[in-house]
Design a protein around this nucleic acid. Sequence first.
DNA 1: TTCGATGTCGAACACTGTTCTAGCAGGCAG
DNA 2: CTGCCTGCTAGAACAGTGTTCGACATCGAA
Lengths: 242, 242
Amino acid sequence: MATTPDLPPPPWQRVPQRPGGRRRDPLTQEAIVDAALKVLDAEGLDGLSMRRVAEELDTGAASLYWHVGSKDGLLDLIFDRVISEQEVPDPEPERWREQLKEVARTMREAILRHRDVVRISIGRVPMGPHALEYSERVLAILRAGGVPDQLAVVGLHLLTSVINGFTIDETGQGGEPPEGQPPIDEIARAARDYVAALPLDRFPNMVEVADQFAFSDQNERFELLIDLFVEGLASRVDAERG
Amino acid sequence: MATTPDLPPPPWQRVPQRPGGRRRDPLTQEAIVDAALKVLDAEGLDGLSMRRVAEELDTGAASLYWHVGSKDGLLDLIFDRVISEQEVPDPEPERWREQLKEVARTMREAILRHRDVVRISIGRVPMGPHALEYSERVLAILRAGGVPDQLAVVGLHLLTSVINGFTIDETGQGGEPPEGQPPIDEIARAARDYVAALPLDRFPNMVEVADQFAFSDQNERFELLIDLFVEGLASRVDAERG
DNA sequence: TTCGATGTCGAACACTGTTCTAGCAGGCAG
DNA sequence: CTGCCTGCTAGAACAGTGTTCGACATCGAA
Protein backbone atom coordinates (compact mmCIF):
# COMPACT_ATOMS: atom_id res chain seq x y z
CA MET A 1 0.00 0.00 0.00
CA ALA A 2 1.76 3.05 -1.18
CA THR A 3 -0.99 5.51 -0.30
CA THR A 4 -3.98 5.42 2.01
CA PRO A 5 -7.00 4.93 -0.28
CA ASP A 6 -9.40 6.85 1.96
CA LEU A 7 -7.47 10.08 1.85
CA PRO A 8 -9.14 12.85 -0.14
CA PRO A 9 -7.46 13.12 -3.52
CA PRO A 10 -5.08 16.04 -3.87
CA PRO A 11 -6.87 19.02 -5.35
CA TRP A 12 -4.64 19.30 -8.39
CA GLN A 13 -5.47 15.76 -9.44
CA ARG A 14 -8.94 16.42 -10.76
CA VAL A 15 -10.72 13.12 -10.09
CA PRO A 16 -14.43 13.09 -10.99
CA GLN A 17 -16.75 12.33 -8.10
CA ARG A 18 -18.28 9.48 -10.03
CA PRO A 19 -16.43 8.57 -13.21
CA GLY A 20 -18.17 9.07 -16.50
CA GLY A 21 -19.08 5.45 -17.12
CA ARG A 22 -21.96 3.32 -15.86
CA ARG A 23 -23.24 3.83 -12.37
CA ARG A 24 -24.17 1.13 -9.91
CA ASP A 25 -27.79 2.15 -10.06
CA PRO A 26 -28.44 2.99 -13.71
CA LEU A 27 -31.00 5.62 -14.54
CA THR A 28 -34.38 4.64 -15.94
CA GLN A 29 -37.42 6.56 -17.10
CA GLU A 30 -39.28 5.09 -14.17
CA ALA A 31 -36.69 6.14 -11.62
CA ILE A 32 -36.61 9.64 -13.10
CA VAL A 33 -40.38 9.95 -12.99
CA ASP A 34 -40.35 8.71 -9.40
CA ALA A 35 -37.84 11.37 -8.44
CA ALA A 36 -39.66 14.06 -10.37
CA LEU A 37 -42.97 13.20 -8.74
CA LYS A 38 -41.27 13.34 -5.37
CA VAL A 39 -39.88 16.79 -6.08
CA LEU A 40 -43.21 17.92 -7.49
CA ASP A 41 -45.19 16.85 -4.45
CA ALA A 42 -42.68 18.44 -2.12
CA GLU A 43 -41.90 21.70 -3.88
CA GLY A 44 -44.53 22.23 -6.54
CA LEU A 45 -44.17 22.84 -10.24
CA ASP A 46 -42.03 25.93 -9.81
CA GLY A 47 -39.53 23.89 -7.83
CA LEU A 48 -39.41 21.18 -10.46
CA SER A 49 -36.27 21.91 -12.44
CA MET A 50 -34.18 19.39 -14.28
CA ARG A 51 -31.26 20.18 -12.02
CA ARG A 52 -33.39 19.55 -8.97
CA VAL A 53 -34.59 16.18 -10.24
CA ALA A 54 -31.04 15.21 -11.17
CA GLU A 55 -29.87 16.17 -7.70
CA GLU A 56 -32.50 13.84 -6.26
CA LEU A 57 -30.96 11.06 -8.34
CA ASP A 58 -27.46 12.12 -7.36
CA THR A 59 -26.40 13.01 -10.86
CA GLY A 60 -26.28 15.93 -13.28
CA ALA A 61 -29.09 17.44 -15.31
CA ALA A 62 -27.56 16.45 -18.61
CA SER A 63 -27.92 12.76 -17.79
CA LEU A 64 -31.68 13.02 -17.68
CA TYR A 65 -31.91 14.11 -21.28
CA TRP A 66 -30.75 10.74 -22.51
CA HIS A 67 -33.85 9.12 -21.00
CA VAL A 68 -36.62 11.69 -21.26
CA GLY A 69 -35.59 13.86 -24.19
CA SER A 70 -36.76 17.14 -22.72
CA LYS A 71 -38.47 18.59 -19.73
CA ASP A 72 -41.72 18.48 -21.65
CA GLY A 73 -41.19 14.80 -22.26
CA LEU A 74 -40.68 14.29 -18.56
CA LEU A 75 -43.91 16.14 -17.84
CA ASP A 76 -45.68 13.86 -20.32
CA LEU A 77 -44.45 10.87 -18.39
CA ILE A 78 -45.52 12.35 -15.07
CA PHE A 79 -48.95 13.04 -16.53
CA ASP A 80 -49.37 9.50 -17.73
CA ARG A 81 -48.10 8.15 -14.44
CA VAL A 82 -50.74 10.02 -12.47
CA ILE A 83 -53.42 8.75 -14.81
CA SER A 84 -52.17 5.22 -14.22
CA GLU A 85 -52.83 5.68 -10.51
CA GLN A 86 -56.57 5.88 -11.14
CA GLU A 87 -58.56 2.68 -11.10
CA VAL A 88 -61.69 2.49 -13.22
CA PRO A 89 -64.29 -0.11 -12.21
CA ASP A 90 -65.72 -2.71 -14.56
CA PRO A 91 -69.01 -1.64 -16.12
CA GLU A 92 -72.27 -2.26 -14.30
CA PRO A 93 -74.81 -1.06 -16.86
CA GLU A 94 -77.57 -0.21 -14.38
CA ARG A 95 -75.25 1.95 -12.32
CA TRP A 96 -73.44 3.86 -15.09
CA ARG A 97 -74.34 7.27 -13.71
CA GLU A 98 -73.05 6.47 -10.25
CA GLN A 99 -69.98 4.83 -11.76
CA LEU A 100 -69.24 7.92 -13.79
CA LYS A 101 -69.40 9.99 -10.64
CA GLU A 102 -66.99 7.58 -9.00
CA VAL A 103 -64.62 8.04 -11.91
CA ALA A 104 -64.89 11.78 -11.46
CA ARG A 105 -64.20 11.61 -7.75
CA THR A 106 -61.21 9.37 -8.31
CA MET A 107 -59.85 11.80 -10.85
CA ARG A 108 -60.17 14.70 -8.46
CA GLU A 109 -58.47 12.72 -5.73
CA ALA A 110 -55.55 11.82 -7.96
CA ILE A 111 -55.14 15.45 -8.93
CA LEU A 112 -55.28 16.67 -5.37
CA ARG A 113 -52.84 13.99 -4.24
CA HIS A 114 -50.07 15.43 -6.40
CA ARG A 115 -49.44 19.10 -6.05
CA ASP A 116 -49.69 21.16 -9.23
CA VAL A 117 -50.24 18.13 -11.41
CA VAL A 118 -53.31 19.82 -12.85
CA ARG A 119 -51.09 22.58 -14.14
CA ILE A 120 -49.00 19.94 -15.86
CA SER A 121 -52.03 18.42 -17.51
CA ILE A 122 -53.00 21.72 -19.01
CA GLY A 123 -51.95 21.55 -22.61
CA ARG A 124 -51.36 17.83 -22.65
CA VAL A 125 -53.44 15.44 -24.73
CA PRO A 126 -53.98 12.25 -22.75
CA MET A 127 -52.57 9.83 -25.27
CA GLY A 128 -49.93 8.02 -23.27
CA PRO A 129 -50.28 4.26 -22.81
CA HIS A 130 -52.03 4.51 -19.47
CA ALA A 131 -54.26 7.32 -20.69
CA LEU A 132 -55.49 5.14 -23.53
CA GLU A 133 -56.19 2.32 -21.12
CA TYR A 134 -58.04 4.79 -18.94
CA SER A 135 -60.20 6.14 -21.75
CA GLU A 136 -60.97 2.63 -22.87
CA ARG A 137 -62.33 1.68 -19.48
CA VAL A 138 -64.40 4.83 -19.01
CA LEU A 139 -65.86 4.43 -22.46
CA ALA A 140 -66.76 0.87 -21.54
CA ILE A 141 -68.85 2.16 -18.66
CA LEU A 142 -70.62 4.78 -20.75
CA ARG A 143 -71.40 2.49 -23.65
CA ALA A 144 -72.54 -0.30 -21.38
CA GLY A 145 -74.91 2.22 -19.87
CA GLY A 146 -76.39 2.91 -23.25
CA VAL A 147 -74.79 6.28 -24.00
CA PRO A 148 -74.57 6.78 -27.77
CA ASP A 149 -71.03 6.73 -29.14
CA GLN A 150 -70.75 10.39 -30.00
CA LEU A 151 -72.19 11.54 -26.71
CA ALA A 152 -69.90 9.15 -24.88
CA VAL A 153 -66.78 10.57 -26.50
CA VAL A 154 -67.63 14.22 -26.03
CA GLY A 155 -68.95 13.42 -22.58
CA LEU A 156 -65.63 11.92 -21.58
CA HIS A 157 -63.78 14.91 -22.96
CA LEU A 158 -66.07 17.41 -21.30
CA LEU A 159 -65.90 15.61 -18.00
CA THR A 160 -62.13 15.83 -17.83
CA SER A 161 -62.22 19.46 -18.95
CA VAL A 162 -64.74 20.31 -16.29
CA ILE A 163 -62.83 18.54 -13.54
CA ASN A 164 -59.63 20.21 -14.64
CA GLY A 165 -61.33 23.56 -14.43
CA PHE A 166 -62.71 22.82 -11.02
CA THR A 167 -59.49 21.54 -9.51
CA ILE A 168 -57.48 24.35 -11.04
CA ASP A 169 -59.13 26.98 -8.98
CA GLU A 170 -59.63 24.64 -6.09
CA THR A 171 -55.89 24.29 -5.73
CA GLY A 172 -55.48 28.02 -6.14
CA GLN A 173 -52.46 29.27 -7.98
CA GLY A 174 -50.49 26.34 -6.76
CA GLY A 175 -49.16 28.78 -4.25
CA GLU A 176 -47.13 26.88 -1.73
CA PRO A 177 -48.81 26.12 1.60
CA PRO A 178 -47.08 28.96 3.43
CA GLU A 179 -45.83 27.42 6.69
CA GLY A 180 -47.94 25.23 8.91
CA GLN A 181 -51.38 24.08 7.85
CA PRO A 182 -52.92 25.81 4.85
CA PRO A 183 -55.63 28.12 6.21
CA ILE A 184 -58.09 26.84 3.68
CA ASP A 185 -61.06 29.00 4.56
CA GLU A 186 -59.02 31.78 6.07
CA ILE A 187 -58.79 33.09 2.54
CA ALA A 188 -62.51 32.65 2.00
CA ARG A 189 -63.23 34.68 5.10
CA ALA A 190 -60.87 37.43 4.00
CA ALA A 191 -62.64 37.49 0.65
CA ARG A 192 -65.99 37.76 2.45
CA ASP A 193 -64.77 40.70 4.53
CA TYR A 194 -63.34 42.40 1.50
CA VAL A 195 -66.51 42.02 -0.52
CA ALA A 196 -68.67 43.11 2.41
CA ALA A 197 -66.71 46.33 2.70
CA LEU A 198 -67.33 47.30 -0.92
CA PRO A 199 -69.29 50.51 -1.59
CA LEU A 200 -72.91 49.46 -1.44
CA ASP A 201 -74.15 51.84 -4.11
CA ARG A 202 -71.88 50.39 -6.79
CA PHE A 203 -71.92 46.76 -5.67
CA PRO A 204 -75.35 46.12 -4.14
CA ASN A 205 -75.54 42.46 -5.12
CA MET A 206 -71.99 41.63 -4.12
CA VAL A 207 -72.37 43.19 -0.71
CA GLU A 208 -75.68 41.47 -0.08
CA VAL A 209 -74.36 38.01 -0.87
CA ALA A 210 -70.96 38.62 0.71
CA ASP A 211 -71.57 35.99 3.37
CA GLN A 212 -71.75 33.33 0.70
CA PHE A 213 -68.09 33.93 -0.05
CA ALA A 214 -67.13 32.84 3.44
CA PHE A 215 -67.96 29.18 3.68
CA SER A 216 -67.07 27.06 0.75
CA ASP A 217 -67.15 23.31 1.12
CA GLN A 218 -65.26 22.21 -1.94
CA ASN A 219 -66.51 18.64 -1.65
CA GLU A 220 -70.06 19.87 -1.69
CA ARG A 221 -69.36 22.07 -4.67
CA PHE A 222 -67.74 19.22 -6.51
CA GLU A 223 -70.68 16.96 -5.86
CA LEU A 224 -72.99 19.66 -7.17
CA LEU A 225 -70.90 20.01 -10.28
CA ILE A 226 -70.71 16.36 -11.20
CA ASP A 227 -74.37 15.91 -10.36
CA LEU A 228 -75.26 18.72 -12.74
CA PHE A 229 -73.05 17.14 -15.35
CA VAL A 230 -74.01 13.50 -15.04
CA GLU A 231 -77.73 14.07 -14.68
CA GLY A 232 -77.63 16.47 -17.60
CA LEU A 233 -75.85 13.87 -19.66
CA ALA A 234 -78.35 11.21 -18.65
CA SER A 235 -81.31 13.30 -19.70
CA ARG A 236 -79.59 13.89 -23.02
CA VAL A 237 -79.22 10.16 -23.42
CA ASP A 238 -82.90 9.62 -22.76
CA ALA A 239 -83.81 12.38 -25.19
CA GLU A 240 -81.55 11.06 -27.93
CA ARG A 241 -82.67 7.48 -27.64
CA GLY A 242 -86.32 8.46 -27.63
CA MET B 1 -21.63 75.90 -33.92
CA ALA B 2 -18.53 74.22 -32.71
CA THR B 3 -19.59 70.67 -33.61
CA THR B 4 -22.18 69.19 -35.91
CA PRO B 5 -24.98 67.98 -33.61
CA ASP B 6 -25.98 65.09 -35.86
CA LEU B 7 -22.63 63.38 -35.76
CA PRO B 8 -22.54 60.16 -33.79
CA PRO B 9 -20.98 60.81 -30.41
CA PRO B 10 -17.39 59.64 -30.00
CA PRO B 11 -17.29 56.17 -28.52
CA TRP B 12 -15.35 57.12 -25.41
CA GLN B 13 -17.97 59.66 -24.43
CA ARG B 14 -20.57 57.22 -23.18
CA VAL B 15 -23.81 59.03 -23.89
CA PRO B 16 -26.97 57.08 -23.01
CA GLN B 17 -29.35 56.49 -25.91
CA ARG B 18 -32.11 58.20 -24.01
CA PRO B 19 -30.92 60.02 -20.93
CA GLY B 20 -31.96 58.65 -17.58
CA GLY B 21 -34.61 61.24 -16.85
CA ARG B 22 -38.24 61.52 -17.92
CA ARG B 23 -39.20 60.53 -21.40
CA ARG B 24 -41.43 62.47 -23.73
CA ASP B 25 -44.01 59.74 -23.60
CA PRO B 26 -43.99 58.65 -19.97
CA LEU B 27 -44.78 55.06 -19.15
CA THR B 28 -48.14 54.16 -17.65
CA GLN B 29 -49.70 50.96 -16.40
CA GLU B 30 -52.17 51.24 -19.22
CA ALA B 31 -49.53 51.65 -21.89
CA ILE B 32 -47.60 48.72 -20.48
CA VAL B 33 -50.68 46.51 -20.44
CA ASP B 34 -51.43 47.56 -24.00
CA ALA B 35 -47.96 46.58 -25.11
CA ALA B 36 -48.05 43.34 -23.15
CA LEU B 37 -51.38 42.36 -24.64
CA LYS B 38 -50.01 43.11 -28.07
CA VAL B 39 -47.01 40.87 -27.47
CA LEU B 40 -49.21 38.20 -25.95
CA ASP B 41 -51.59 38.06 -28.89
CA ALA B 42 -48.73 37.99 -31.34
CA GLU B 43 -46.29 35.63 -29.66
CA GLY B 44 -48.15 33.81 -26.92
CA LEU B 45 -47.40 33.50 -23.25
CA ASP B 46 -43.99 31.97 -23.81
CA GLY B 47 -42.98 35.00 -25.84
CA LEU B 48 -44.17 37.39 -23.19
CA SER B 49 -41.02 38.39 -21.35
CA MET B 50 -40.45 41.63 -19.54
CA ARG B 51 -37.62 42.44 -21.91
CA ARG B 52 -39.89 41.87 -24.88
CA VAL B 53 -42.60 44.15 -23.50
CA ALA B 54 -40.02 46.78 -22.70
CA GLU B 55 -38.68 46.57 -26.21
CA GLU B 56 -42.18 47.20 -27.52
CA LEU B 57 -42.20 50.37 -25.46
CA ASP B 58 -38.70 51.25 -26.59
CA THR B 59 -37.18 51.06 -23.16
CA GLY B 60 -35.47 48.63 -20.78
CA ALA B 61 -37.03 45.91 -18.69
CA ALA B 62 -36.09 47.56 -15.42
CA SER B 63 -38.32 50.52 -16.18
CA LEU B 64 -41.43 48.39 -16.14
CA TYR B 65 -40.93 47.38 -12.54
CA TRP B 66 -41.64 50.87 -11.32
CA HIS B 67 -45.19 50.63 -12.68
CA VAL B 68 -46.21 47.01 -12.37
CA GLY B 69 -44.10 45.71 -9.52
CA SER B 70 -43.47 42.29 -10.98
CA LYS B 71 -44.31 40.14 -13.92
CA ASP B 72 -47.06 38.56 -11.88
CA GLY B 73 -48.48 42.01 -11.22
CA LEU B 74 -48.47 42.67 -14.93
CA LEU B 75 -50.31 39.41 -15.55
CA ASP B 76 -52.89 40.46 -12.97
CA LEU B 77 -53.46 43.65 -14.90
CA ILE B 78 -53.75 41.81 -18.19
CA PHE B 79 -56.26 39.44 -16.62
CA ASP B 80 -58.40 42.29 -15.34
CA ARG B 81 -58.16 44.07 -18.65
CA VAL B 82 -59.54 41.09 -20.54
CA ILE B 83 -62.39 40.82 -18.07
CA SER B 84 -63.17 44.48 -18.68
CA GLU B 85 -63.65 43.71 -22.36
CA GLN B 86 -66.72 41.63 -21.58
CA GLU B 87 -70.06 43.35 -21.49
CA VAL B 88 -72.76 41.93 -19.24
CA PRO B 89 -76.37 42.79 -20.10
CA ASP B 90 -78.84 44.32 -17.67
CA PRO B 91 -81.04 41.72 -15.98
CA GLU B 92 -84.21 40.57 -17.66
CA PRO B 93 -85.67 38.25 -15.01
CA GLU B 94 -87.70 36.08 -17.40
CA ARG B 95 -84.67 35.40 -19.56
CA TRP B 96 -82.04 34.71 -16.91
CA ARG B 97 -81.12 31.33 -18.30
CA GLU B 98 -80.56 32.62 -21.79
CA GLN B 99 -78.71 35.63 -20.39
CA LEU B 100 -76.41 33.37 -18.43
CA LYS B 101 -75.63 31.49 -21.59
CA GLU B 102 -74.86 34.78 -23.31
CA VAL B 103 -72.47 35.63 -20.51
CA ALA B 104 -70.79 32.28 -21.00
CA ARG B 105 -70.46 32.75 -24.73
CA THR B 106 -69.02 36.22 -24.27
CA MET B 107 -66.48 34.86 -21.82
CA ARG B 108 -65.38 32.19 -24.22
CA GLU B 109 -65.05 34.73 -27.01
CA ALA B 110 -62.92 37.03 -24.89
CA ILE B 111 -60.66 34.14 -23.98
CA LEU B 112 -60.29 32.99 -27.55
CA ARG B 113 -59.63 36.54 -28.72
CA HIS B 114 -56.44 36.75 -26.72
CA ARG B 115 -54.01 33.94 -27.15
CA ASP B 116 -53.02 32.08 -24.01
CA VAL B 117 -54.98 34.40 -21.75
CA VAL B 118 -56.66 31.38 -20.23
CA ARG B 119 -53.28 30.17 -19.06
CA ILE B 120 -52.79 33.52 -17.38
CA SER B 121 -56.11 33.28 -15.60
CA ILE B 122 -55.16 29.96 -14.12
CA GLY B 123 -54.20 30.66 -10.55
CA ARG B 124 -55.62 34.15 -10.46
CA VAL B 125 -58.54 35.14 -8.26
CA PRO B 126 -60.73 37.57 -10.19
CA MET B 127 -60.66 40.39 -7.67
CA GLY B 128 -59.42 43.30 -9.76
CA PRO B 129 -61.67 46.34 -10.15
CA HIS B 130 -63.19 45.20 -13.41
CA ALA B 131 -63.59 41.65 -12.14
CA LEU B 132 -65.66 42.92 -9.23
CA GLU B 133 -67.81 44.95 -11.57
CA TYR B 134 -68.21 41.87 -13.70
CA SER B 135 -69.25 39.63 -10.82
CA GLU B 136 -71.67 42.27 -9.64
CA ARG B 137 -73.46 42.34 -12.95
CA VAL B 138 -73.64 38.57 -13.38
CA LEU B 139 -74.96 38.19 -9.87
CA ALA B 140 -77.59 40.77 -10.69
CA ILE B 141 -78.84 38.56 -13.51
CA LEU B 142 -78.92 35.42 -11.40
CA ARG B 143 -80.64 37.02 -8.42
CA ALA B 144 -83.14 38.81 -10.61
CA GLY B 145 -83.95 35.41 -12.06
CA GLY B 146 -84.72 34.08 -8.62
CA VAL B 147 -81.59 32.04 -8.01
CA PRO B 148 -80.99 31.76 -4.24
CA ASP B 149 -77.93 33.63 -3.02
CA GLN B 150 -75.77 30.65 -2.22
CA LEU B 151 -76.54 28.88 -5.46
CA ALA B 152 -75.89 32.11 -7.35
CA VAL B 153 -72.42 32.51 -5.88
CA VAL B 154 -71.30 28.92 -6.36
CA GLY B 155 -72.99 28.90 -9.74
CA LEU B 156 -70.94 31.88 -10.86
CA HIS B 157 -67.77 30.27 -9.59
CA LEU B 158 -68.51 26.94 -11.20
CA LEU B 159 -69.43 28.55 -14.49
CA THR B 160 -66.09 30.30 -14.80
CA SER B 161 -64.25 27.15 -13.72
CA VAL B 162 -66.09 25.11 -16.29
CA ILE B 163 -65.46 27.58 -19.08
CA ASN B 164 -61.82 27.80 -18.14
CA GLY B 165 -61.56 24.04 -18.31
CA PHE B 166 -63.27 23.94 -21.67
CA THR B 167 -61.22 26.69 -23.29
CA ILE B 168 -57.99 25.32 -21.87
CA ASP B 169 -58.13 22.20 -23.91
CA GLU B 170 -59.90 23.93 -26.74
CA THR B 171 -56.87 26.13 -27.25
CA GLY B 172 -54.58 23.16 -26.89
CA GLN B 173 -51.28 23.68 -25.23
CA GLY B 174 -51.17 27.19 -26.53
CA GLY B 175 -48.83 25.79 -29.08
CA GLU B 176 -48.21 28.39 -31.71
CA PRO B 177 -50.14 28.07 -34.98
CA PRO B 178 -47.20 26.58 -36.89
CA GLU B 179 -47.12 28.45 -40.19
CA GLY B 180 -50.12 29.12 -42.32
CA GLN B 181 -53.61 28.28 -41.19
CA PRO B 182 -53.94 26.17 -38.07
CA PRO B 183 -55.07 22.73 -39.23
CA ILE B 184 -57.78 22.65 -36.62
CA ASP B 185 -59.24 19.26 -37.38
CA GLU B 186 -56.12 17.89 -38.99
CA ILE B 187 -55.12 16.93 -35.48
CA ALA B 188 -58.50 15.42 -34.78
CA ARG B 189 -58.20 13.27 -37.88
CA ALA B 190 -54.73 12.14 -36.89
CA ALA B 191 -56.08 11.21 -33.47
CA ARG B 192 -58.87 9.24 -35.14
CA ASP B 193 -56.40 7.32 -37.28
CA TYR B 194 -54.19 6.62 -34.34
CA VAL B 195 -57.03 5.35 -32.19
CA ALA B 196 -58.45 3.28 -35.02
CA ALA B 197 -55.10 1.52 -35.41
CA LEU B 198 -55.00 0.41 -31.79
CA PRO B 199 -55.02 -3.35 -31.08
CA LEU B 200 -58.66 -4.30 -31.04
CA ASP B 201 -58.39 -6.94 -28.36
CA ARG B 202 -57.08 -4.50 -25.76
CA PHE B 203 -59.03 -1.41 -26.85
CA PRO B 204 -62.35 -2.64 -28.23
CA ASN B 205 -64.37 0.41 -27.21
CA MET B 206 -61.78 2.93 -28.35
CA VAL B 207 -61.45 1.34 -31.75
CA GLU B 208 -65.20 1.10 -32.24
CA VAL B 209 -65.81 4.77 -31.48
CA ALA B 210 -62.63 5.97 -33.19
CA ASP B 211 -64.61 7.87 -35.79
CA GLN B 212 -66.03 10.11 -33.11
CA PHE B 213 -62.56 11.49 -32.51
CA ALA B 214 -62.43 12.88 -36.01
CA PHE B 215 -65.03 15.59 -36.22
CA SER B 216 -65.25 17.91 -33.28
CA ASP B 217 -67.28 21.08 -33.61
CA GLN B 218 -66.12 23.04 -30.62
CA ASN B 219 -69.03 25.46 -30.83
CA GLU B 220 -71.46 22.58 -30.64
CA ARG B 221 -69.60 21.10 -27.72
CA PHE B 222 -69.60 24.39 -25.91
CA GLU B 223 -73.33 24.81 -26.41
CA LEU B 224 -73.84 21.32 -25.05
CA LEU B 225 -71.74 22.11 -22.03
CA ILE B 226 -73.45 25.36 -21.08
CA ASP B 227 -76.83 23.85 -21.76
CA LEU B 228 -76.03 21.02 -19.38
CA PHE B 229 -74.87 23.53 -16.86
CA VAL B 230 -77.58 26.16 -17.07
CA GLU B 231 -80.48 23.74 -17.29
CA GLY B 232 -79.06 21.77 -14.40
CA LEU B 233 -78.78 24.94 -12.39
CA ALA B 234 -82.31 25.93 -13.26
CA SER B 235 -83.74 22.62 -12.13
CA ARG B 236 -81.84 23.03 -8.88
CA VAL B 237 -83.43 26.42 -8.45
CA ASP B 238 -86.90 24.99 -8.93
CA ALA B 239 -86.13 22.19 -6.51
CA GLU B 240 -84.77 24.50 -3.84
CA ARG B 241 -87.58 27.00 -4.03
CA GLY B 242 -90.19 24.30 -3.74
C1' DT C 1 -31.36 78.10 -6.86
C1' DT C 2 -31.71 74.13 -4.24
C1' DC C 3 -33.80 70.02 -2.98
C1' DG C 4 -36.49 66.13 -2.66
C1' DA C 5 -39.72 63.15 -5.33
C1' DT C 6 -40.49 60.81 -9.34
C1' DG C 7 -39.11 58.19 -12.84
C1' DT C 8 -35.54 55.91 -16.06
C1' DC C 9 -32.51 52.29 -17.17
C1' DG C 10 -27.59 49.81 -17.84
C1' DA C 11 -25.43 46.30 -15.45
C1' DA C 12 -25.38 42.45 -12.82
C1' DC C 13 -27.20 38.13 -10.23
C1' DA C 14 -29.07 33.76 -9.77
C1' DC C 15 -31.56 30.69 -12.13
C1' DT C 16 -33.63 28.13 -16.04
C1' DG C 17 -33.77 24.39 -20.21
C1' DT C 18 -30.73 22.62 -23.35
C1' DT C 19 -26.55 21.22 -26.13
C1' DC C 20 -21.78 19.92 -26.69
C1' DT C 21 -18.30 17.08 -25.89
C1' DA C 22 -15.23 14.14 -23.52
C1' DG C 23 -15.04 9.97 -21.59
C1' DC C 24 -15.96 5.53 -19.04
C1' DA C 25 -17.88 0.69 -18.91
C1' DG C 26 -19.62 -3.57 -20.73
C1' DG C 27 -20.55 -6.70 -24.68
C1' DC C 28 -19.08 -8.46 -28.90
C1' DA C 29 -15.99 -9.60 -33.00
C1' DG C 30 -11.71 -11.10 -34.37
C1' DC D 1 -6.84 -11.59 -25.02
C1' DT D 2 -7.28 -7.28 -27.84
C1' DG D 3 -9.76 -3.77 -29.78
C1' DC D 4 -13.71 -1.43 -30.78
C1' DC D 5 -18.26 0.16 -30.67
C1' DT D 6 -22.41 1.35 -28.56
C1' DG D 7 -24.96 2.80 -24.36
C1' DC D 8 -24.70 5.87 -20.97
C1' DT D 9 -22.82 9.50 -17.76
C1' DA D 10 -21.90 14.10 -16.63
C1' DG D 11 -19.08 18.78 -16.47
C1' DA D 12 -19.02 22.99 -18.84
C1' DA D 13 -21.03 26.34 -21.40
C1' DC D 14 -24.89 29.10 -23.84
C1' DA D 15 -28.74 31.89 -24.35
C1' DG D 16 -32.51 33.21 -22.10
C1' DT D 17 -35.38 34.41 -17.90
C1' DG D 18 -37.29 37.53 -13.67
C1' DT D 19 -35.54 40.69 -10.61
C1' DT D 20 -32.55 44.09 -7.92
C1' DC D 21 -29.23 47.78 -7.44
C1' DG D 22 -27.61 52.06 -7.93
C1' DA D 23 -26.47 55.95 -10.66
C1' DC D 24 -28.76 59.41 -12.89
C1' DA D 25 -31.99 62.83 -15.12
C1' DT D 26 -35.90 65.64 -14.91
C1' DC D 27 -39.80 68.13 -12.75
C1' DG D 28 -42.51 70.79 -9.10
C1' DA D 29 -42.17 73.27 -5.00
C1' DA D 30 -39.83 76.01 -1.50
